[in-house]
């Protein structure tokens, strides 16, 4: 990938992560440019989640660099909380705040992390909740929502922070099949609107249609990377072909 390191929203260089003696990430070089939608695919256990969690420091990398607009966020004294407000994250398990209703889920981060006034935070939250079709549910608690509804609220929560990029870790894997569509529809809309997104997914059709670029992870490295059209239509690597064959067969 290009040399425009400073242009990337986030870039990782030789990112490594071990749990004990078990090296899971073996040197990942990756970058996301503004407005790009990148899908990360790969077999279970290849390290996709670990990679995504390292990017916003939910896991602390063992070595390497994570550059945010060219500055290494792993440097001592870097304001990590501030950095995280610029990167939204959507989890497989939704992780909505169980003690808060739908609206407050989208407000608390703005108030506590960005220092926004409550009234403005509410207004902004309402806007994004409407965008994902969850504005009628502002008074509901997470336990009163279906999986698909929870995930749409989680997306609105992340959007309410008005981040520069959104990270998705298998956002539809915990959903019942009939709810996958509503969440993918929301994400497709976001991609079209020009939001920068990194999506770890097993939804190959979605990855092919929505992302500009696809990274295939295998054994802790990015084994192949390219445009969605190229990777899905003629993968260069044998491993990529094998992996994709399983989906075409299905």
């Amino acid at each position: 990938m290009g040399t425009g390191g400073a242009k990337a929203v986030v870039e990782t260089r030789d990112l490594r992560k071990s749990f004990g003696t078990n090296e899971i990430l073996k040197g990942i070089d990756f970058q996301v440019l503004p407005g790009e939608v990148v899908s990360v695919i790969g077999a279970s256990g290849s390290g996709k989640s670990t990679f995504l969690r390292c990017v916003n420091l939910l896991e602390w990398p063992s070595s390497g660099e994570i550059l945010y607009h060219g500055r290494d966020v792993l440097e001592r004294g870097y304001d990590i909380n501030r950095f995280r407000t610029h990167l939204g994250m959507v989890f497989q398990q939704f992780n909505l705040f169980n003690n808060l209703n739908v609206l407050d889920n989208c407000v608390i981060g703005q108030v506590r992390a960005l220092g926004e006034a409550k009234a403005e935070a509410r207004e902004r939250a309402m806007g994004y909740l409407a965008k994902v079709g969850m504005d009628p549910y502002i008074d509901a608690k997470p336990r009163q929502l279906s999986g698909g509804q929870k995930q749409r609220v989680a997306i609105a929560r992340a959007l309410s922070m008005e981040p520069e990029a959104l990270l998705f870790d298998e956002p539809t894997s915990a959903l019942d099949p009939e709810m996958v569509g509503e969440v993918l529809a929301v994400m497709g809309g976001l991609a079209e609107s020009g939001l920068t997104m990194v999506i770890v997914t097993h939804e190959m059709a979605f990855a092919r249609d929505v992302s500009g670029r696809v990274a295939f992870m295998d054994g802790g490295v990015i084994a192949e990377e390219g445009s969605a059209a190229q990777v899905f239509a003629n993968p260069n690597k044998e491993r990529t072909k094998e992996f994709l064959a399983r989906f075409h067969a299905g």
């Binding site: 501030r82 407000t85 939204g88 994250m89 705040f97 981060g109 992390a113 960005l114 992340a158």
Partner: peptide, 17 residues
């Protein structure tokens, strides 16, 4: 659930918040 802490971290909230 540790996911609650992770989600709070992910929106940039500090330990006390």
């Amino acid at each position: 659930d540790p996911g609650q802490t992770e989600a709070a971290k992910a929106v940039g909230m500090g330990h006390w918040a």
